[in-house]
Design a protein around this nucleic acid. Sequence first.
RNA 1: GCCCCCAUAGCUCAGGGGAUAGAGCAAAGGUUUCCUAAACCUUGUGUCGCAGGUUCGAAUCCUGCUGGGGGCGCCA
Length: 551
Amino acid sequence: MGYFSLVLSLPSLLSSRIEAVTGVDPELRPATKPQFGHFQSNVALRLAKTEGKPPRQVAARIVDDLDLEDLCEPIDIAGPGFINLRLKSEVLARSVTEQLADPAVGVSQTARPEVVVVDYSAPNVAKQMHVGHLRSSIIGDCLTRVLTAVGHHVIPQNHVGDWGTQFGMLVEQIVTDGTDVSSLTLADAEALYTKANAHFKADEDFATRARQRVVSLQSGDPETRKIWQQLIDVSLAGFNQAYQRLGVLLTDDHLAGESTYNDDLEAVVADLEANGTAVTDDGALCVFVEGFNSPMIVRKRDGGFGYSATDLAAIRRRVREFGATRLIYVVGAPQSFHFDQVFAVARKVGFLPDNVSAEHVAFGQVLGADGRKFSTREGTAVTLDSLLDAAEEKAAPAIALAAIKYADLSNGLNKDYVFDVDRMVATIGNTGPYLQYAHARVTQVLRKAEADGLTSQDTVTVLPEPAEQTLALLLCRFGEIVAEVSETLQPHKLCAYLYELAGALSIFYEQCPVLKSEGEVRTSRLALCLGTKRVLASGLTMLGIEALDRM
RNA sequence: GCCCCCAUAGCUCAGGGGAUAGAGCAAAGGUUUCCUAAACCUUGUGUCGCAGGUUCGAAUCCUGCUGGGGGCGCCA
């Protein structure tokens, strides 16, 4: 057997070997059933038409030309012409052994590293975070971790809502009441917000002063700015507390609120006008883009800027100053139209060159137990803290958090899902705690092994049992899965993989005694345990879930 | 009116044009002198919303419907 590196991952190695013969991507997939081996390709069926030969004949020709003797058992042609591959046991063993020696646990660095901006969380100043922010924060954090793991330079951006007409009324309310902002909590600030809103509607005189406040704020009036800044400070303290509780990566370094684009807005307008894309219509500065039945309003009739303007400014900065070539927005599905339009306008005006991609990762709503929009009895949005509290009533904090995050990530992102605490914290079934348990249990085996002086855990040599082979096979697919998620931005694929891995570990655990076995079998199984633990830990970390050593 | 998303087992959901459409939950039964039973094993369930079309082959692609959710010029 000649030397070959498996570091690239076994599936891609097989794939490239087959492509060398077929000339097209063999679309190698994990076998759908154990009796079909480890991997299957339908390439012969697809080639049959162009070659004008029966699929099985094409398959036979491919298999004849194929040189996989060093990796696979003799190749089967099955059914209408599927090519089924079964890896040699020693190849699988070696693959796991190499993964054990790899600090990246088999996750390879991308060949084309990019500067990627991930825009997520985006809470509003003077408001508590609610379910929508929970989803954005969890998903964005996961994407940040995955993209970083494959070697991209990720710049998280927290596009905090800190600049708009609502701050006029808020500041005016504070001035009217003589409130000491620095002593407020975020919940207090939100109550103040509600009060100001009602005041604004009921009192025309107050409303007028509130509008003047907006002008004062934007023109830099010191007193107004001071109060505004105090509101931000109070809010940030609350956000950071929430981030800490959630265990997400966001820090003050990633803050880039709407206000930070204020000075860029005139330049954005100038670019739009110079480019000829913006026109004044009904007093507002608009951009009409083909395919959209309504224009994007950049500047309102009253001269104020809407959020389209700050979003354009953000794109401009992210591309020109950060050098980003991929922009990712983790924002709820209702904003789809807005982002489609902003991206289209940004393309038209040249803020988004062809080599830069912009993606809206749209996520669905979190629904209440009744399947309707999740809100309190009073009809207000459910706060993030109250969700975490509810879960922590059922489980320890680390497990409760895992339950929530996994529930959020394990389904397709664009679907709504029901916030069902009991189902999420269950340790049976496809849940976060189940994965944590699998990790804790395999850790326990390794801990006992070390206590017994069994420290050799770095080489898998034999895989006599089917349960071991299944486990090894799954381990060697980890890198591919992570790479896929980094491209498609679908965390549920990583969840599904880890769940399958945890299940395979449980079966292995039932069927293959580790500490009670002996000699080479025991050494090999210990290494398999370590390999599984590392992949579980790595995968869970990418999901933002803590891999517990004990439960 | 126009646009977007969704519809798969009783429930929650996977399914990247290919083999007999799969998991989990729920239900019933079983496994522990043995590394965490927070586990594992066994048992059944489908007009893949409807109707056409493309294809050797469609849950998957196209068109048209039905039903649910969301969005569509001065809030963000």
